[in-house]
């Protein structure tokens, strides 16, 4: 079925099924970390997650119907935000910790060994606390992640050709489906109409914080790469080069 003909419930169950599997770093962690070893673990994990992120995006109903140029552009714009929201979701029940993967968990203080990363860890932990306070539900989380992807370049490009315009219109209709799905997920929580509206506002406002942390993270990673602290390669390199 086309996403426009799907009920919000159906749409959510499709994006729940699209969720990537749990991923392990599978490295022998030598503690204490050095700046280089921690950056290497973080980038290795990010590279593995990126491969799964592409398959995830393709499973979002309607995504592959967008032009290939739009698909590429969207993913290049939002990949670090998506990684960060996933990290927040994994960490939501572990105050003070960042659960990068089941075998790679860091305390805030462990950020001390990488120059400039503690500031980013603190922003990640603060946004995670907000999600904890709001008691973020899995259904809401998957909607927010799809929203980040589809919203990521809406205001940075304007369609020129007829083909671009068509893809843009498809994108807007797809965003409508995701917003409907999020509204439906919130409506299942037994809140008053006013509380539902407030919750929608609070959840979507958090996305601007995630964009901010992602920009900070992007600057940090490119400076680590420039200073040769870490060797960035493969898909991660391609995505990083696109954003800087």
């Amino acid at each position: 079925a086309h996403h426009s003909a799907m009920s919000p419930e159906e749409f959510i169950s499709r994006i729940m099924e699209a969720e990537p599997p749990e991923i392990y770093l599978m490295e022998d962690m030598k503690k204490p970390f050095t700046e280089a070893s921690m950056m290497m673990s973080l980038t290795n994990l990010a590279d593995k997650e990126l491969v799964l992120m592409i398959s995830w995006a393709k499973k979002i109903p309607g995504f592959v119907e967008l032009s290939l140029a739009d698909q590429i552009h969207l993913l290049k714009c939002c990949w670090l935000e998506i990684l960060m929201l996933g990290l927040m979701w994994r960490s939501v029940d572990h105050p003070g910790k960042l659960i990068f993967s089941p075998d790679f968990k860091l305390n805030r203080e462990e950020g001390q060994c990488v120059e400039g990363i503690m500031e980013i860890f603190d922003m990640l932990l603060a946004a995670t606390s907000r999600f904890r306070e709001l008691k973020l539900q899995r259904e809401e989380y998957v909607c927010l992640k799809a929203m980040i992807l589809l919203n990521s370049n809406l205001c940075t490009s304007s369609p020129q050709t007829a083909e671009e315009l068509e893809s843009r219109n498809k994108l807007l209709r797809l965003l409508d489906s995701v917003i409907d799905a999020l509204v439906w997920a919130i409506s299942k929580l037994g809140l008053s109409t006013q509380q539902q509206t407030l919750r929608l506002g609070h959840l979507t406002m958090l996305l601007s914080h995630i964009r901010h942390v992602s920009n900070k993270g992007m600057d940090h990673l490119s400076s680590m790469k420039r200073k040769n602290v870490v060797l960035v390669y493969d898909l991660l390199l391609e995505m990083l080069d696109a954003s800087t």
Binding site: I54, S55, K58, K59, L68, Q71, I72, L75, L235
Partner: peptide
Amino acid sequence: HTKLLQLLTTKPE
């Protein structure tokens, strides 16, 4: 061919 393009254009198994 970039890796992103390659991953986007391969058919799911």
